[in-house]
Nucleic acid binder design. Structure first.
Length: 550
RNA sequence: GGUGAUGUAGCUCAGAUGGUUAGAGCGGCGGACUCAUAACCCGCAGGUCGGUGGUUCAAUUCCACCCAUCACCA
């Protein structure tokens, strides 16, 4: 069934260049990556972009601490990110940085347009200032005693103990995290974006974007509180883009970060003749734009970002897909428990396909949190991937390799069974499309059960003892191999590396989603090699042990 | 504190616009098989669907309150 090719641009949230990629980040990138791979497998023109989010105070201070420039720091960190992503099979069409000329140009253009439209104004506000360091302090850089419950050493924006929210000025005995001195209050002129003027336009956008129910509930909550104008500037010293016409004012990192999506794409367009920036970023085209994000940054992506885009004469996202957070063994990731696991630590012990599959088996389109239960992880992956899926090929390949010189039969033994598998393609595709990966995995594994049952019923190992039945053995095993092949095609978005090996085993060059409908017959296949090994308990305990140490 | 979400078998999760015996996979137990990476196949046992009250002929499914967990509060 031919599907009309779509032109889709997808982004993952930009990882902040301060720290390493961990298992929590990977929920985000794997969710996006599976979707993108699915769209490409279906034959759509799909472009996948990302970048490092590099601006802001934390990066500036970290670079200072290391004695290098922010640019140097973020280049190092980006290189590390890219290695981690790549080793997990997450391959972007372009991975860039928000500290780029393209981004500065776009941010500048948007700002000027907004200002010309009257969406920008300035206002003097009072902020915590560290005299010793000579800089204004973000809320998180002031600590003190909670004014409500009296718990000491709390951040300047909220109390971890009682949950109160306040400003640094409310803290009792505040101190600067940087110098340990007591911050003073100082006036500064800031630039504001009139978000309050955008309520109706945002409501209209919300309707068209077909957001998830839980996302809409959150937005509704924010609308009820009333939209406040947004402070988009920060004082020097700051690592970011200077606001045109000022000496010491910079754009707040959250203004230029999402623009980084567009900038990364523009950078890619310069190298690709088949991509046109305006077709994807200006109104009036039938291209699609999606952002995969975590629920913690919904405010920026469902309010600020669409509002800024509209006001600046750009198109708005087709939709925004928000996911929940990761817990490990039912709890927040924790260094002391060894459940704060970095991507690299995982890779030192385990295969990326294991995690890709496990996340897929538990991911849905909602903002509910996802639990990585390490015992369940091992059991699930071993049972589904090794015991069921790979087993199908493993138990059939021996006969084909040894008895028939690697030659598949020219006809299926049970065409109607293959047709059943082919008929599931649309249902599985629908699940992928709606990001109901867990449902897709359930359908696929139910088919894998059917394939194993079929082989069990046919008993090729019994027939193989009778020369007269060799033809049937070949047909049954060819059937089994083809059932396996269909399932691997369906699973290509989830476990692309394993799918590549499976395709090589079948000696095929290329797979398209619809190839699952046409059996592979009469072909010669390679010697079967184990496509995936089981997760051993020791690998997990070693990974946890290493995570405790680092 | 306010708001939102979640709470279903040992584990991870489905599901029910209120109505006969609430489902799956894994784990456990029993059996069968030996092609397969101790994989696969058949069968069995497990749950008063977080708690209390209310609406109803009938609630686990609706409502209220409570408890627990998580998130957001720009």
């Amino acid at each position: 069934m031919p599907v009309k090719p779509r032109k889709i641009l997808v982004s993952n949230a930009l990882p902040y260049a301060n720290g390493s990629i961990h298992m929590g980040h990977l929920v985000e990138y794997l969710q996006g990556n599976i979707w993108i791979r699915f769209q490409k497998l279906r034959g759509h023109q799909c472009t996948y972009i990302c970048a490092s989010d590099v601006h802001g105070t934390p990066v500036m201070l970290k670079a200072r601490e290391l004695g290098i420039s922010p640019e140097e720091l973020t280049e190092q960190v980006s290189a590390e990110f890219l290695r981690d992503f790549s080793d997990f099979g997450i391959e972007f069409d372009n991975y860039y940085t928000t500290h780029s000329p393209e981004n500065e140009a776009l941010v500048g253009e948007m700002f000027e347009t907004l200002r010309a439209n009257g969406d920008i104004y300035t206002k003097t506000i009072e902020q915590a200032y560290d005299e010793k360091e000579g800089m204004f302090l973000p809320d998180r850089f002031v600590r003190g005693t909670c004014p409500r419950c009296g718990t000491d050493d709390q951040y300047g924006d909220a109390c971890e103990n009682c949950g109160a929210t306040y400003t640094p000025a409310d803290l009792i005995d505040p101190i600067s995290v940087l110098s340990g001195s007591t911050p003073i209050k100082r006036d500064s002129e800031h630039y504001f974006f009139r978000l309050s003027q955008y309520e109706q336009r945002l409501r209209d956008w919300m309707q068209s974007a077909a957001l998830e129910k839980s996302v809409l509930a959150k937005l509704e909550e924010w609308f009820e509180t009333g939209l406040q104008d947004w402070d988009i500037s920060r004082d020097a010293p700051y690592f970011g883009f200077r606001i045109p016409g000022t000496d010491d004012k910079y754009f707040y990192v959250w203004l230029d970060a999402p623009v980084g999506y567009a900038a990364s794409f523009r950078n890619l367009c310069d190298r690709r003749d088949d991509l046109d920036f305006d077709e994807y970023w200006r109104p009036g085209h039938d291209t699609e734009l999606y952002h995969f994000i975590g629920k913690d940054i919904m405010y920026f992506h469902t309010l600020f970002w669409p509002a800024v885009l509209q006001g600046a004469g750009f198109r708005t996202p087709t939709s925004v897909f928000a996911h929940g957070f990761l817990t490990v063994n039912g709890q927040k990731m924790s260094k002391s428990r060894g459940t704060f696991i970095n991507a690299r630590t995982y890779l030192d012990h385990l295969h990326p396909a294991h995690l890709r599959y496990y996340y897929a088996a538990k991911l849905g389109p909602t903002i509910e949190d996802l639990d990585l239960n390490l015992d369940d992880f091992a059991a699930r992956v071993n049972s589904d991937l090794v015991g069921k899926l790979v087993n199908i090929a493993s138990r059939c390949a021996g006969f084909i390799n040894k008895r028939f010189d690697g030659q598949l039969a020219t006809e299926l033994h049970a065409p109607e069974l293959h047709a059943t598998f082919a008929d599931s393609a649309d249902e599985i595709a629908e699940h992928y499309e709606r990001r109901e990966y867990s449902k897709a995995m359930r359908v696929i594994m139910a088919l894998a059960d059917e394939a194993n049952r079929y082989i069990d019923e046919q008993k090729p190992w019994v027939m193989a003892k009778d020369e007269a039945q060799l033809g049937a053995v070949q047909a049954v095993c060819t059937q089994g191999i083809n059932l396996f092949r269909s399932l691997m095609i369906y699973l290509t978005p989830v476990i692309p590396g394993v799918a590549d090996d499976a395709r090589a085993f079948l000696q095929e060059q290329h797979w398209h989603w619809d190839d699952a409908k046409t059996p592979l017959l009469g072909a010669t296949i390679s010697q079967f090699k184990p496509l995936l090994t089981r997760v051993e308990p020791e690998q997990i305990s070693n990974m946890v042990k290493q995570s405790k140490q680092s």
